[in-house]
Design a protein around this nucleic acid. Structure first.
Lengths: 212, 212
DNA sequence: CGATTAATGGCACTCTCTGCCACTAATTGA
DNA sequence: TCAATTAGTGGCAGAGAGTGCCATTAATCG
């Protein structure tokens, strides 16, 4: 009956935990991004990244299917943080108010270096088409998570057009605001700027209605 | 003074016109897309595409910087058509009403084969990550055009946050609706479906306001 | 026809990424 | 402590992607 978990008596070396793997990916990606910023994507080879990260080239290609994917671990930090906040969106609140109350973009749970690194990556995607494509792909994956949250609130199915449109719209708002804050912090980040970022998102959400 | 056009007494073979070049790109892309659909992107080599299109591999790579770009000519047809409609948006009309009045998605100016081909490509992008990335990149380029139109209507600068957000949102609406129509026409297209597509876009635009 | 400029094709070469295999690491049971 | 088992790593070979360079061909003008 319950074949849900066919208890296999595990033997042999156990696979590394998912967190460990993510950690390793993140570590490699830091080196990759630094090299991308210094020399450009085209001038940075997989071999170079692998060497900088202290693994063999073969192993590097096992961690990343293509070198553009090196930006994923860092960008996921940011997109994921937003999704988490959205998950915690209480039913009785307006989205804008919730964000004002709960969204400290990148502020909590991340070190200052991480914030700087993430913004650096976003800036990179603005000049490196290949990285931009990876970024856009990542964002679209995140839309599914957003849709899940929105579906939960409205009772509509997760793949309803209205839900998917709203998810895509929220994602678009976040994208534009993030691009903007990345640009405006190219000469250094201050708390003020990140606060401004949050207000921009709120404003932008309001601006959506003006389309009518 | 007027160095605007330094009249060069042209000599030698003239460069091919832009339209001719686009036409050639389109022709090659048809072969590419057919092969992509038949065998998958990964199993289709540049050499194969070139051979099918009747040009040398070297020339093929001059027309397309990477093979994923082969979907651009067809997809541009669709995105471009929408942008054109938006350009013609009269100031006194609501967007939704304008679309209802003026947007025959892919219907005018395109043969039936073209419609089928475009929808086929969109469907391809849903299963082929590499093509999806190219599609998303193309859409983001189109956002600039949308922003231009929206800026013109509101008097705001083209790079104002509000404008960029609205452009991204409209683009997102169109994306979701297009994905949907592509999916629902996998077994053949009818006029009805395309009409429905337009209504879905209108509905989706309305749905945006419900985010508040 | 010669001079000039554009487009194409061919060749060599680098880089990306994969399949395969040998080797090492971690774990369990005898 | 020693097989047996399973996972991760590195090395090597090779197909394919994409570029630089040069010779050849095509189109145009005087």
């Amino acid at each position: 009956m319950t074949d849900v978990v066919t208890e296999k008596p595990r033997r042999g070396r156990p696979p590394v935990s998912d967190e460990q793997r993510q950690q390793q990916r993140l570590e490699i990606s830091r080196h990759a991004v630094r090299l991308f910023a210094e020399q450009g994507v085209a001038n940075t080879s997989g071999e170079q990244i692998a060497q900088a990260a202290g693994v063999s080239e073969r192993t590097f290609w096992r961690y990343f299917p293509h070198k553009e994917a090196c930006v994923e671990p860092l960008l996921t930090k940011m997109v994921g943080a937003f999704c988490e906040v959205l998950r915690a969106w209480p039913a009785e609140l307006e989205l804008i108010d919730h964000l004002r109350a709960a969204y400290s973009p990148l502020l909590d749970g991340a070190t200052d270096e991480d914030i700087e690194a993430v913004l650096e990556v976003v800036r990179l995607t603005q000049n490196e088409p290949a990285l931009r494509a990876a970024y856009l792909t990542l964002r679209e994956r995140a839309e599914h998570t957003l849709a899940e949250v929105l579906a939960g609130r409205t009772g509509l199915p997760q793949d309803a057009i209205e839900i998917r449109v709203q998810a895509a719209a929220v994602s678009a708002v976040l994208k534009v605001a993030t691009d903007d804050v990345a640009r405006s912090t190219s000469k250094g980040v201050t708390r003020d700027m990140l606060e401004l970022h949050r207000e921009q998102i709120a404003d932008a959400l309001r601006g959506l209605s003006r389309l009518r």
